[in-house]
Design a protein around this nucleic acid. Structure first.
Length: 377
DNA sequence: AAGGCGGGGAT
DNA sequence: ATCCCAGCCTT
């Protein structure tokens, strides 16, 4: 095996990222605490029965990592089993014809991955005695292996210490540290790499890599993260600032017109919610909805005109996106409790209180219903 | 810095 | 329909 010294922790604690110190402090946890919590979570909820984990050899780790580039676990599993049955080790892959390799890959997409896989197997036979090199730069020098895949191989195959930065890690770090900007830009990516390096624990590196991916894939998911049961909820900047829906920032594209609005969830002591009837024209015409305003100032003025309570006590909830055919609407909801209704509301045909049970029978816009349901949970 | 590469899952 | 996925390589 060509190689370098195994698994000696280079340094403990602080990362190698002078330019990201400000964001690294934002989460408010001590060094090592994030990894400790995620590893504890992994011990209870991590995925431990994936096909490439039994047995976990360098060849199987490498093959799985290549197949998993831009491809979900549920899709890869079947292909992986078929592939390793036909070509059970690296020399067998090196000996195979390109046609056979491509046939085993057929349907997986991104066929350059298969050609590079085959080329790398041959190179490993030539250069590295038929094994994958246990060295970051030597791995990256092989076709189809970038920095993240190299890190995943080193950690999973040998428990060596190296960071990864896949889609899961990017999403988790952007939320946890409140990082703005599309993660695809070099500047953001550089910052994420430095944070990923700074979070590395000193042991259990294979578990650490798997823990991050499992956490991103099953808990801190793109569309509906399970923040309520997240082991990092108290430290998450996006959670604290109500920006879960906004982070990570989406790839800039041909933008549909984007509109923003604010909605108030006003709750009385009995748990009833204040509804507002929308005008008879325009979107959601005549549907019952939530009090809605263009700006925070407008919302505050409306609140003070209609209700008794402290507007400053309103809590920002995560923004909610809703798509129409011709524009995209981002709703910024706020939750506020009031001591009781003012008499005037009873006389207002466009305002009413509704209990949670009544809501099921009232025509509400889909995002509003979703919002109120989530709020109840 | 941007585009190409594929097919499928989730919403 | 749209976005994204255990990214990497070329231009």
């Amino acid at each position: 095996m060509s190689a370098r010294s195994p698994a000696t922790p280079r340094r403990s604690g602080r990362g190698e990222a002078p330019d990201s110190s400000s964001t690294q402090q934002a989460h408010g946890l001590a060094d090592g605490e994030i990894a400790a919590r995620l590893l504890a979570w992994f011990d209870r909820h991590g995925r431990v029965d994936l096909p490439w984990q039994h047995p976990r050899t360098p060849y199987r780790v490498w093959l799985s990592e290549i197949m998993l580039q831009q491809t979900q676990v549920s899709v890869v599993s079947g292909y992986f089993e078929r592939f390793v049955s036909a070509l059970p080790d690296l020399p067998a892959l090196a000996r195979a014809s390109q046609d056979e390799v491509l046939a085993l890959w057929s349907g997986l997409g991104y066929y350059a991955r298969a050609r590079n896989l085959h080329a790398t197997a041959k190179l490993c036979v030539e250069r590295h005695g038929g094994d994958l090199p246990r060295d970051l730069d030597a791995l990256i020098a092989l076709p189809g292996i970038g920095r993240s895949t190299a890190g995943a191989i080193l950690t999973q195959a040998w428990n060596d210490r190296a960071p990864i930065l896949d889609g899961n890690v990017k999403r988790v770090l952007c939320r946890l540290f409140g990082i703005d900007g599309w993660p695809g830009t070099p500047a953001v990516e550089k910052q994420l790499w430095s944070i990923a390096a700074s979070l590395l624990p000193d042991a259990r590196l294979a578990d650490w890599t798997q823990a991050q991916m499992d956490f991103g894939a099953t808990l801190c998911t793109r569309a509906s993260p399970a923040c309520a049961i997240c082991p990092l909820q108290d430290a998450c900047v996006a959670r604290r600032e109500g920006r879960i829906a906004e982070l990570p920032a989406a790839k800039p594209g041909k933008p549909l017109p984007q509109r923003e609005t604010r909605m108030l969830i006003v709750e009385d002591p009995a748990g009833r919610v204040l509804l507002w009837r929308r005008p008879p024209t325009g979107v959601w015409a005549s549907l019952w909805s939530l009090p809605q305003h263009e700006s925070s100032d407008e919302a505050q003025a409306w609140f003070q005109r209609h209700l008794d309570g402290d507007f400053a006590s309103a809590r920002a909830l995560p923004a909610l996106d809703h798509g129409f055919t011709h524009f995209r609407l981002r709703i910024h909801p706020r939750l506020i409790a009031v001591s009781g209704p003012r008499a005037a509301i009873g006389d207002n045909a466009d305002l009413r209180w509704a209990s949670r049970a009544e809501l099921a029978t009232i025509g509400l816009p889909a995002p509003v219903r979703k919002l109120l349901q989530e709020q109840t949970e």
